[in-house]
Design a binder for these strands. Sequence first.
DNA 1: CACGAGACCTGTTCGC
DNA 2: TGCGAACAGGTCTCGT
Length: 274
Amino acid sequence: MPELPEVESIAQRLCEGTETIPLPGRKIKHVSLYWPRHIVQPSVSTFRRRMKDRVIRDVRRRGKFLVFPLDEGNLLIHLRMSGDLTICPAKKPRGSYEHTIFHLDEPWQLRFSDARKFGLIYYLKDPGRVLNRLGPEPLDPAFTAHLLAERLKKHQRMLKPLLLDQRFLAGLGNIYTDEALHYAGLHPRIRSDSLSQDQVEKLWHGIQTTLREGLRQNGASIDWVYRGGSFQNQFRVYQRTGEPCPICSTPIERIIVGQRGTHICPHCQPEITK
DNA sequence: CACGAGACCTGTTCGC
DNA sequence: TGCGAACAGGTCTCGT
């Protein structure tokens, strides 16, 4: 589920606490771990001890990570494929996917639900140890088309797997990559170092446009995992196999690129560039 | 360095 | 209806 727009929407929801309580200012009394393998660092017992009585200062996002600066250290959560975070009353029965529960100082809890159990939780003094490996934020003003061009030239890789590589750019996932490439009229297998200036500009605009539109719609809701977003109604190619391309009406095709299901318009995104 | 295969998990949907 | 295969928002490790 969660790519940049979905993670950002979740961060905002937790920060504002509409209909629940804002997370900043709350104290974590203790945690319940029903799937301890979620805890990457430190050890489970240390994590438990360190979380006790920490005060949550803020809720932020970096790439696809949720970052919670605490009065002491930082909590990092990566939702991976099926994670979601909600604030709910302590008395609400625990759902079968709610594997990690943070008990707060009010009759509320922060619950990490994760059907596929791929999620990751860190408690770190220095979050940079994890976050510094990430590439630039695509919506940061510092991320210009010029910078994108420079970075693309440093590799000779297929466009799509490169865009999905979080060290190259932080926040894109399968949905927004397919959408951005269609917007730019670029085939996902084109080599990153073979783009013209014009093509780089289109790709940059495609990334900006799809992410901003995703944010405006609070992300995309798919399947049973995450709801709340409506960007799925705007998909041009993602999961639209067989439907007409909104630009030229050619049926959308599904192919595999870098072991990921990939959706393209074979007419708007020719494999051979001119 | 680039890339494919396989792994980590569970749930839903597809095809016969 | 039943049952296995395919597929799912992500990323890591290993071998070529």
